[in-house]
């Protein structure tokens, strides 16, 4: 690691922090609205894991969803903006290796994801009492999820040439993956076919393991979720690093 990495990482942090109103406050508000609406509609009707109140069940899901979406958003929008405006050239000219480049973008994405997630947790704590059964699992899944989506954001930001291509990536891949992963429900409440389908969605394991950290109960064992999430991270990291090493779409 060289000074180049530190600066690039810091620049990426500053980039979202300077507009924290849009990049942090807005997604926290969105998550809070989800909580208000869904808990209003479903609180009385749905019980999960036996006695757990729906609002309490929903909170970790929303926190994880915020981490996922904001981590993705951070690296992908930074890269596409730099590409479209052309200022990406200023990070391509210095002696920054492709690994440092990757680390800077993904770590900044993780930080943004975790900050927004913490914000959501803080705000939703007013609405429902929370437990923290296994805090280490909470951290582990938060970081891995941020890393996975930060990587995916780097891939999307590099691949997309225009903003609408990035929007398509977000709408047709990221949104379905996060929404169909058990943010709003336990997959045990699904018909068995859809339960089966959910097991092919790596995001499901991230949310399920994350929830285990809060309640100590989950749909699958936390170690299994951890294994799936971790392997997803490794696969995506390898893919993204391969893109960067070859200079795909960045060094013509």
């Amino acid at each position: 690691m060289s000074g180049g990495f530190v600066t690039l990482f810091y620049k990426e942090l500053l980039r979202f922090w300077k507009v924290a109103f849009q990049t942090v406050a807005a997604p926290v508000l969105t998550a809070m609205l989800y909580l208000l609406i869904f808990s209003h509609v479903l609180e009385a009707r749905v019980q999960v894991y036996g006695s757990l109140r729906y609002t309490a069940f929903l909170v970790p899901g929303l926190v994880m969803m915020s981490i996922l979406q904001n981590a993705f958003s951070n690296s992908s929008s930074s890269l596409i903006q730099s590409k479209v405006t052309g200022n990406i050239i200023f990070v391509l000219l210095p002696p920054i290796s492709y690994r440092e480049f990757y680390a800077a973008y993904v770590l900044a994405a993780m930080v943004r994801g975790v900050i927004v997630g913490a914000g959501v947790l803080l705000v939703t704590a007013f609405f429902t009492p929370l437990q923290f059964a296994h805090p280490l699992w909470i951290f582990a899944f938060a970081l891995i999820a941020g890393g996975v989506m930060g990587s995916l954001g780097v891939v999307a930001g590099i691949w997309a040439d225009k903003f609408d291509q990035l929007a398509a990536f977000q709408n047709f891949l990221i949104m379905p993956l996060t929404f169909l992963s058990g943010v709003f429900y336990s997959i045990h409440s699904l018909p068995s076919f859809w339960q089966g389908v959910s097991h092919f969605n790596p995001v499901f394991y991230m949310i399920d393991g994350f929830r285990y950290g809060f309640f100590g109960v989950s749909d699958v064992a936390p170690w299994q979720s951890f294994a799936v999430a971790f392997v997803s991270l490794l696969v995506l990291a390898a893919l993204t690093l391969n893109f960067l090493r070859r200079g795909y779409k960045l060094r013509g």
Partner: peptide, 10 residues
Amino acid sequence: KFQSGYFGIR
């Protein structure tokens, strides 16, 4: 300053 930092210069 950022450009300097990218080259490892503080």
